[in-house]
Each structure stands twice: as structure tokens, then as C-alpha cells.
Design a protein around this nucleic acid. Sequence first.
DNA 1: TATGAATGAGACTTCATTCAT
DNA 2: AATGAATGAAGTCTCATTCAT
Lengths: 201, 201, 201, 201
Amino acid sequence: MRDKNPEKRIRILDAALKVFATRGFYNAKVSEVAKEAGVADGTIYLYFESKDALLIALFEDRMQRLIARANDEIARTEGTVLDKIRQAIALHLSLVLDDPDLAEFITVELRQSGKFVKEYDNPKFTEYLRIFRDLVLAGQEQGLIRRTVDARLVVRAIFGALDELLLTLSLTHRNRSVDLNATVDGLCDIFFDGIRARPAH
Amino acid sequence: MRDKNPEKRIRILDAALKVFATRGFYNAKVSEVAKEAGVADGTIYLYFESKDALLIALFEDRMQRLIARANDEIARTEGTVLDKIRQAIALHLSLVLDDPDLAEFITVELRQSGKFVKEYDNPKFTEYLRIFRDLVLAGQEQGLIRRTVDARLVVRAIFGALDELLLTLSLTHRNRSVDLNATVDGLCDIFFDGIRARPAH
Amino acid sequence: MRDKNPEKRIRILDAALKVFATRGFYNAKVSEVAKEAGVADGTIYLYFESKDALLIALFEDRMQRLIARANDEIARTEGTVLDKIRQAIALHLSLVLDDPDLAEFITVELRQSGKFVKEYDNPKFTEYLRIFRDLVLAGQEQGLIRRTVDARLVVRAIFGALDELLLTLSLTHRNRSVDLNATVDGLCDIFFDGIRARPAH
Amino acid sequence: MRDKNPEKRIRILDAALKVFATRGFYNAKVSEVAKEAGVADGTIYLYFESKDALLIALFEDRMQRLIARANDEIARTEGTVLDKIRQAIALHLSLVLDDPDLAEFITVELRQSGKFVKEYDNPKFTEYLRIFRDLVLAGQEQGLIRRTVDARLVVRAIFGALDELLLTLSLTHRNRSVDLNATVDGLCDIFFDGIRARPAH
DNA sequence: TATGAATGAGACTTCATTCAT
DNA sequence: AATGAATGAAGTCTCATTCAT
């Protein structure tokens, strides 16, 4: 079921991303995905067991790519752990421009899937978060990040902020130019140094 | 359609919250809501135009309450703007214990609704965010919050973090005891002072 | 699910009998049954859980009637146990004229149902056979039927013969006049006295 | 379409028998037959026009064999016509042990096919019945069987009884040992001499 | 106002059959 | 001749919504 025609499987996944992002998983019809993929309705079921399974496979696939890309970019980033975190943040937000459908899909469908599609665990999502967690932990070991903050809390806070921003950007800036750099800088500023005004010294 | 029997309208909204939170909006059946509310299926339609309209009315109602409560608690909180922000954060996270259904509903259904239920704008959500924004703006005017951070960005970041945490707490700590205070403190610490280690002085 | 509208339930069962008898269970569409019953497709599912359940309910209903009628007629038949057996045989075969659809339904669908529709046990069929068995056993006790024959075997043989004949009659004599009496007499003659020629004495 | 590869045709028929007997014709998938036969789905259609045609071909094939075997065994049976009838009965019932799939297939699918698969006439079945009919007619001519019984009725009764018994045996005694001889003897006793007790003389 | 039986459009999915390889 | 991926028609069943009572 996985190897009949890898190219067709990819086409179906691409179509599913587009349709799910545009209409939402529950409003999307399998026949719409098929049409978008240029295959017959029944063909979907040669590659995926059900509509739910298609959703999950799509998650796995896209999150896997995102994880790979994040790991890659982080590895190539010179500088401190904070620079790497900035890079990961930039990558995440860049989805809004690079792959708007994926951005909408992740921000909107990720939650539903976790809770309502079967008992899907979403291991790839956990793996993605681990990238951030490892950076934070490394930063703490290196003395660059305060040891008093809870790494998991930091990760959730950062991911939450990213997710919310990506959603907002998706909704408001689709087809508009956004200055992502400013957003990334602003977010890093907030998370790195806090919002509290401090007396100059 | 709004005044026939206010008590019954409330019963239906309560039932809808419970059912939508438990099963998800798309998996929930109108008849389940009716059963939970102790009314006939058709009665739902005397109070709400459609299932979508019920969802939206539920949002409006619950967000309105949350807004009122937030405004109230903030007004009663003594101390600086940062203390008030802490209070708003504490209120938001307290939903996981005070009203778990509402917590799940807000975290999971809010997004879908915004994007796929008709063209609903979610004005109450905007209003809720404004509470945070006004606090941040006030903090900046008072010199307690850095003027270099973008207030809207701060608000999105904080709300995003809250939303993600509430979701995580909902999923993992339902029926378990959570130390919310520690979470609130940790989150304020992160947002107020940042994660970067600073040289002692 | 059983009492909403008994009259409608009956209409659906009647329609199902007609459609299943005419087209066969597997070729019959639920929508055809609905149309024949004069209800919407979905209405079927208010009264029966599934197409399979409808088939089973139909069996139960018709066999129950047949059992009641057989018991009744047997009770009212004067004469020996053999006369009562003749009466039961006559009743069974009379279906071809009285209720041709039921005749076809019983002869053709009864078997499938036993084997392939879920794990349906067909208790009513067993009950129906018991009527014959009890007659045979009574006959043996009374010395009217040979004690050396196995009652269950006799019953199976008689029912099998009846079933086959009913099927043949259904297929060949639909809309034609049949002399059922001759068939009943002939069958009783065979089963009562055997086919072997015996020397006159 | 018949001669391409006779061995493969046979393999498909064997597979069809097994699958149809196990799952029932309507629940059986062509792909299951193909898999069982060790051929590709499409190959089935090189040997048979359709699933229906496969069913019919299977009937023809198996009935032809049964007819041949019955004729053969009858020819080889010494003794009277009644002995030959006993032999034919024994052969029919022996299917439950010799070829349980065929037994189930004949008892369960034969009827459906006659009525619902196209307008198939089932000439082989008629031919099979003729074997019994010829025996009965011969018996009557020889004075061994009463001339007052209707040969066709006798044949239908016997075949019906056999069919019903084979079905019952198939369902209850699959994988269990059965004393077929006793059943054959019992059945012959019933049909030859009837069930009625007669005064000793 | 309230009911809940009835509706019927529409979705997911299956599977007999085809046809390019 | 053989394959098996692809097709797409068609069926069962669901459920938001209606409306007669």
C-alpha cells in the first residue's frame, strides 16, 4: 500500500494538504482531494486506508520534512544556542510565505487531529518540540539561558507563540508581504530579554 | 429567538459546551446536545438558527463571561500593570481546573470556528486580546514595559503561550492536580525577564 | 426504535418482503425498500439498525406469524397426528398461493441469512421445525408413527421436501393455478407409506 | 476463452469454490478468488466473462462431475433400483465429508444463482435430478416402486430432503465425525417404507 | 412553545471491471 | 497471456434540519 506508485502517493498528499488547508479537514471531501490530485476517488484508498489515515499520513510527512529542515538549518547555523533558537523560530514563521497551505494546516488542523482523529498520538509533533527543548537545555548547560526557567515551559511558550503568530499571519497576510524578519526579531527580543523595562546601568 | 425562555437557552449552551468539548464540534450531533440539554432536537432550532450559529453563540457567551471576569479581576488587582498581567494569565490558565470543558473548547474549537464556520469574525476574541493589549500599552506608558517591544506582538505571544499551555494542561492533566501557581510564575518570569542569562551585577 | 409508529414499521417490513423476494437480499437496495414503503431512505434506519437487521427482523416477524398460524391450525385440526402433519404440510405449501413473496423469501433467503448475515441463529426457524418434531414424537408415543425412525431426521426430510417443493412451485407456478391438494396428498402418501411397492395382502 | 490454459482455469474454479463456500457469493470478492488461485485479478477475466459467469461455470463444472460420478456409481451398483437410489443418496450426502466446500456451495448458493444471477436456467441441476427421476420411473416399471406416486414429486421430495440434510450436516458437522451410513439408512427407510406404523402381520 | 419522527442530500467507501504495460 | 494499479459507479448509512401535531 506504500510502494505502488510513490509519485502518486505524493500527489495525493499534496492535494490533501491543499484541500484540507483550504476547506478544513471536516469540510473537505475525499472526492475533492481526488480531483485535486487528478486521480479517481477510489485511488485514494489504494494509498490510504481512510480519510483519517490520510490526515495522519499528511501530518507525519509534513512534520518529518519540517523536522529534517529544522535540524539541518540549526546544524548549519553558526553562533550560540540563542542564534539557533532564532533560526528555528524564523524557519517556523517562514512557512507562512514558503508554504501557506502547510502553515494553515499545521495551525488549524494539528489540534483537532490530536484530540479527535482516533487516538493519534502525534509523535512527530513531539519530536519537533524536542528540537526546541534540546536547544534550551543546551543553552542552560552553557550558561546562556537561565537555569531557573523550566525548559519544557519555555518550549511550550515559544511554540505557542509561534503557532498563534503563524495562524494570525496566515489569516491576515495571505498574499500580502510581511516583514518576517521584524517579527522574528521582535519575538526573540521578547523571549530572550523579557518585556520588563529595566533601569539602564 | 432570544427571549423565549432564557433559562432553556442557557441549558442548551451549557449542553453544547459539554458535548462540543467532549466530542469536538464536527463529531458532535445536534441530537446529543439536545439530549444533554434535556430538550427535543427541534427545540435547539427555536433558539439557534443552525449548528454553526450555536457554536458561535457559545463562543460569544463564554468569551463575554471571560472578558467580564478578566476585566473584573484586573480591576480588583492591586499593584502594577505587570501584576495585572500576571492576574490575567492566572485567570486564563485557571480554566483548566475551573471549567475544563471550556478550556478544551477554547483551545481546540476556537481556531476551526474562525476559519471554517461561515465567515465568523470572532469579535469577542479580539476584545479579549484587547484586555491584554491595553495592559501592555499602559505598561509602556508607565515605563514598566519596554517601549521597544511591539504590543501586539507581545499580546499574540502571551496568548499563544497561554493557549498552548491550556491545551497541554487540558490533555494531560484532566482529573489530575496541577500546580498552576508554578506555571503562572514560570510563564511570567519568562515573559517579564526573558530566558537569557545575564551577568550578575 | 420499535414503537415510534408500529404501522410504519409494518409497512417497511411489507415492502422489504416484496423487494427482497423480487430482487434478492443482496441485489435489493435500501432505497428500493424505502420507495416501496413510501418512506424516505433514512426512515428505514429509524426502525431498523441496518439492512441486515431489517432482514432478520423480517424473518422473525414472518416466521412468528407462520408459527402462530401453524400452531393454530394444528390445534383446530381434528384427527390423528398424521392428519395434523398433513395440515402443517398443507399450510406450508399454501404459502405459494397465499403469499408468494413470502414463499420465495423463505425458500431463497432463509439459507443465506443463516450463514452469512452476522451470526444470526434463526431461532424462529428452529421453533418452526419444533412444531413438526413434536407432532412426530407424539405420533411415535401414540404408536401411529414407527418408533424406529429418527424424529429429527423425519422432520428434516419433510421440511426439506416442503422447502424444495415450495421453491419449485414458486418458480414455475407463479400466477398459475396449482392443485395444491394433489401435491399435499402425494407428499403425505410418500412420507406416510413410502414409495416401495408392497405385496397386497 | 476456454483453452488458453486449462490448468489455470481449473485453479480459478477451485479457488472460487473455496471462496464462495466460505464467504458466500455476494460477500466474496473477485480479488479473493484471484488471490486464492494465485493469479492476478485481471486474469480471472481472461477465463470468465464476469463474476456471475464464474459462478455459473463453477456450477456447471461441479454438477457435471457430480452427475458423472452418480451415473458411474449407479451403474456399478448391483441390486435393485432401490439399492441404486440408496447409492445416489449416499453419494450426495457423502459430499459433506468428501468435499465440504462443494456441499456448502450447492446447498447455499444453488438457489440464489437460479433466481438472481441473470436468468440462468441451471440445466445441469435438471440433469442431476433426472438421474433420480429415471431411477424412480424404472422402479415403477419394474414394480418395485408404487405406481401411484408421482415420480417428479418423489424426486423433489428426495432431493429436498437431501439438500436440507446436507445443509444441516454442513453447518453442524464441519470438522466433526458424522455417521453418514446411519443417516442414509434412516432416510431410505423413511422414503422407502414411510413413517406410518403398520400393524404387524 | 415544544416535540421528535421524518426527511433526503450527501459522504465515505467498496469492488467488479478495465487496460496500459 | 498475465498483471495489478486504476477506475468510478453505486450503495449504505448519517445527521442537520423541518414541520405536523
